[in-house]
Every structure is written in structure tokens, then in C-alpha cells.
Simulated assay, not measured.
Amino acid sequence: MDPAPGGAEIPTGDAACANRAPVLAALDLGTNNCRLLIARPCREGFRVIDAFSRIVRLGEGLTRSDRLCDDAMSRTVQALKVCRSKMERRGVSHLRAVGTEACRRADNCDEFLTRVQDETGLEIEIISPKEEARLALAGVAPLLDASIQYAMVFDIGGGSTEMIWTELVRGRPRVIDQISVPLGVVNLTETYGGDRVCPHDYRRMMDRVAEGLGDFDARNGISKAVAEGRVQMLGASGTVTTLAGIQMGLARYDRSRVDGAFLDRDKARSISETLLGLDYMGRAGQPCVGRDRADLVVAGCAILDAIWRQWPVPQLRIADRGVREGILCELAAAARHRRRRG
């Protein structure tokens, strides 16, 4: 597996490997998480053969300094070394590795990317919010209901929240408009705290997110379509998957049960109120939350509440998928195209 500029599709230089079925990898380096999926293309799309996810908090402290701190970079490099090892062990032949909001915002991103390449051999492609949203939509598209005309698709990240207003045309999603709200669970938690969050600060988080939604709503007439019952809502993030797991009463998180499930708006609000009333240790003891997310989940609930306050769709479909799956869909389609050509 040889690095290529921009983190684009990476064919192996080994001629023997080129004659075998390709092994694909998608790496998504976000503000909070480092995620990897390894898969083989198949007739229906792709089949996952390995995965890795670690909370690295790359964007820690970025709100205050506009720089990636040394500890965050070191944690991330160690996680990327694990990714590199997994890819080598699986014989990955095609890779796309992307970085999102933390990398976009950091003044010392170039320094960080050089370190990543030197220590792991990986080149990370910093993608725009528009490309991030496009890939996320490609990843979650199979969960959209083709019988409902419009969809509000969102992804609550560590440093930003991506919103995609979509129309279903003959069952296929077409992006009408999109925005990237520069607020996510990490930067809101750093501003308002992650232990005990008072109701006043919770409302302030909601209001800040709402400020980024008003113009988007007005120029697209989204509220009118919601009132007419022509809008479905689909969310991807640790926040919505956590709330869905709690709603289902899971003793521990189970992706196979959560991905594609539905979250009721009123039930989600009740769960959010319960989590808001707990301190860090209280939330850490909740099933499907744990210590890694206990300080971040309240900010995520505030973002979700702001979205639902703006567009009161009765229920939300949950996607435990996103950018990585979107990348794999495209890599698998390219692999099938190459195979058809000979």
C-alpha cells in the first residue's frame, strides 16, 4: 500500500496484489474520533471485514488557541498507527483518508499532517464541509424512505454540525442546500463545561445552534414542508446513537440494533433532561454513554434539541454510518467499474 497525494484512492504497487480482489479502506479523522473501515467490494456494495474506532479528541483546546495541542496530536498519531497496522495486515489496496473540522480550523494543521506522514506513512486529505456532507449523505442514503419527498439529514460532529436539505427523486437523494454550523460537541463542551451543566447554559447552547439554522430554514421553506408532513429526519453521530441505545434499554451499545432504528422526539427530550440532571460520573454510569462520552453528550443533546425545536418532525431515524461508508461506496463502485473494463 503506497501513499498518494491528497489521500485519494491508493492502488498498491505490488503487481501480484493487483490481480487479487481489491481490499478497500476508509479513514475518517474527525474532531473527536478516528474511525477506520476495511471492506471488500461485492455485488450489493461492500462487505466490512475489519473496523477500528477510537476517541482521540484531536480538537481539544482548539476553541481557545486555534491550534492542535501536542497531547491531542500524539493521541491521534498513535491511533493512526493502529489503523496503518490493520490496513497492512488486511492487505489494503485502495484507501481514502480524510480529515474534517479540526484539521480545517487548526493553524498548525500542516505541521500535524507532516508528522502523521512521517510517523505512519499516511496522507490525510482535508475535505471541505461540502465534501464531508456529500460523503455522509452517500453513506446514510440507504436508510432514507423513498416515499417521503424531503429529508433533513444531519451529522453532529466534534467541531461542527453538518445539515443537508435533500429531495428524494425517484428514490435517490438530491441535495438542495447544505450548511456547516461551526458548533459541535467538543467546542460547546469546552465553552460551557462537561461536568454539571446548568439549564441556563443548556439553553444558551441551543440558542447558539439555532442562530445558524434560521436563514437555512427561511431560504428553503423547510418549516412549511415539515408542517405539511413531507419531511423525514435522519441523524448520524454519537449523540443520536447513544440516545437511541438508551431508549431501547440496551445494557451496552449494539450497532446492529441501533443503526436504522427510530428515536421518538418526546422520548429523546426526556432522556436529554435526565442526562442534563446528572454530573459527569452519573452520566458515565449510564448504559451506552460511558466515560469517553460522558462530558460530551449534554452538548450533543443541546444541538439535537435545537434542530428538533426548529423542525419538529415526530421521529428521527438513526444512522450509525456516515463518511466512511460514503467513501467505501465510491471506492467499491470504482473497483467494480475497473473489473468490468477488464
Rank of each mutant, 00 (worst) to 15 (best):
I271N: 06
G30K: 05
T274Y: 07
A106P: 14
S147H: 01
L27D: 01
A302P: 02
A141N: 02
V181D: 05
G212R: 03
T189C: 12
V56Q: 02
L37T: 06
A133M: 12
S270V: 04
P312F: 09
P312T: 15
S85M: 11
R269V: 03
L135V: 11
T241E: 02
L316H: 08
V289Y: 13
K130V: 10
I124W: 09
A106R: 02
N187D: 11
C103Y: 04
V209E: 04
V289D: 09
I222C: 13
S85D: 09
A136N: 12
S74R: 14
N220L: 11
V153F: 14
D217A: 09
R317S: 11
G235Y: 14
F262M: 11
S93L: 11
W308Y: 07
G157Y: 01
E123K: 03
C198S: 15
R265V: 00
G59C: 06
D254H: 11
A15I: 15
P41H: 07
L316R: 03
R291N: 08
T114R: 05
C69R: 12
K86Y: 12
S256Y: 09
A21N: 06
R324M: 08
E131D: 13
L37E: 07
R338E: 15
A335M: 15
V23Q: 15
V56N: 01
I156S: 10
I49W: 03
